[in-house]
Every structure is written in C-alpha cells, then in structure tokens.
Computed example of a mutant assay.
Amino acid sequence: MNFEHLVQVNDPLNPLAETLTRTQLWEGLVLRAEQPQLFVLGLDSCTILSRTADTLERELHYGHATVRDRVTLIPHETVRYDILATESYVGGTLTMTIEQPDALQLFLRFEYATTLPTPDTEDDRQTSEIVKSAYREADIDTVRLIREYARHPKQPDPLH
C-alpha cells in the first residue's frame, strides 16, 4: 500500500496560527527520530544501535514486540524511515519531506510505502482507509508535538 498526504505547518491566511521556522520544524523531526517515544503511542522505548552523520539504526520496543529500522536524515529537507518487516509487523518506508513554496508557507509531506497488499475486496479497502486515517492523524499530531517542542525547547521532556 502506498499513501501520501500533506500537512500544512504555516498558514499565512490564519493570523492566529503559530508559525514555525524551517529550522524549528527540522529540529522537531530530528527529535522524533532520536526520541520517537515522545511521538509514537504505544512505543515503550527506543535504542539507537548505531549513528553516523546522516543515519540512525534503531530498535523500537512495543511491549514484547521489537521493530528495527534505519533513519536517513538529509538536513533541513527529508527524514526517511526504512522499517524492516517481521512476522508481526508490516515493513516499509515513511518519508517526511519539508516543502516551502514561499517565505510564508511551510508544509510537511508524508509518504508511506508499506508491504500491505493493494486492497482487492471491500473489507480490505475499508481496512486500508482505516490505516490511512490513522497515519494521517498521527502525522497531524507529530506537527502539533513539534509546535510544543518549539514553544518549550529547553525542557528535558518538552512534549509532556
């Protein structure tokens, strides 16, 4: 299953909306990569197994389930998560790309490519729509949490 959508970060038509800089958005995406338990419901812990200038190898612990992934960072542009499939977890990729069409607008594009099959029955299509909706809500929440972090960057656990 492939799925993508755009979350508007800055809305120049809404003067009440708090704006983020590209740097603040990027710092929030890095925080999400390094401390995903602040962003991902049900994630108990994350162990960073290795780190280079632009990659993280991680082990994510959800109760008794463990998922491994590789995070690739292209500074101030893109974060890509490559998730290894297991017997109990769907593998695939998630790419988050910062888009800034002009000085006032800022967006975050989320692109999912999973090993879930393309739905061919009505039940499968409904399940696919539920998964897409959950992804969309989690991504909107990611932007909300990044705003919280930007508002309180010095706190040790700024999102709680």
Rank of each mutant, 00 (worst) to 15 (best):
G28W: 07
G92D: 09
E59Y: 05
H76D: 13
E111T: 14
T55F: 04
F107N: 03
A17W: 04
L43P: 06
Q35W: 15
V30P: 01
P12T: 00
L38V: 05
P101R: 12
E27G: 11
T121R: 11
I74V: 10
I48F: 00
S88L: 15
A53V: 09
M1Q: 06
L116P: 15
R147N: 10
P36A: 01
L84M: 10
R32A: 08
E122T: 05
T19L: 13
L108M: 01
L106H: 10
M96F: 04
V7H: 07
L84D: 04
V131N: 00
E122L: 15
V143Q: 05
D123M: 08
D141L: 15
V71E: 02
R22T: 12
T55A: 06
M96P: 04
D82E: 11
Y89I: 03
Q8C: 07
R109T: 02
S50K: 05
L38E: 11
E4C: 13
L116W: 13
I74C: 10
L25W: 08
A65K: 14
S128A: 07
L145V: 09
D44G: 08
T95I: 01
D120K: 14
K132W: 15
Y149A: 07
D54P: 01
K132M: 13
F39H: 08
L41S: 04
N2I: 03
A65Y: 11
T127V: 01
A65I: 09
D69Y: 06
D141W: 08
T127F: 10
S45N: 04
L43F: 07
D141H: 13
T115V: 05
R22N: 03
P153A: 04
K132A: 14
H152N: 15
A85W: 10
T115S: 09
T114S: 15
E99D: 03
T21M: 12
L6M: 13
Y112Q: 01
S133D: 13
L41W: 10
Y81K: 06
D157L: 15
Y89Q: 00
L20A: 05
R125N: 09
A138E: 06
T114M: 08
H61V: 09
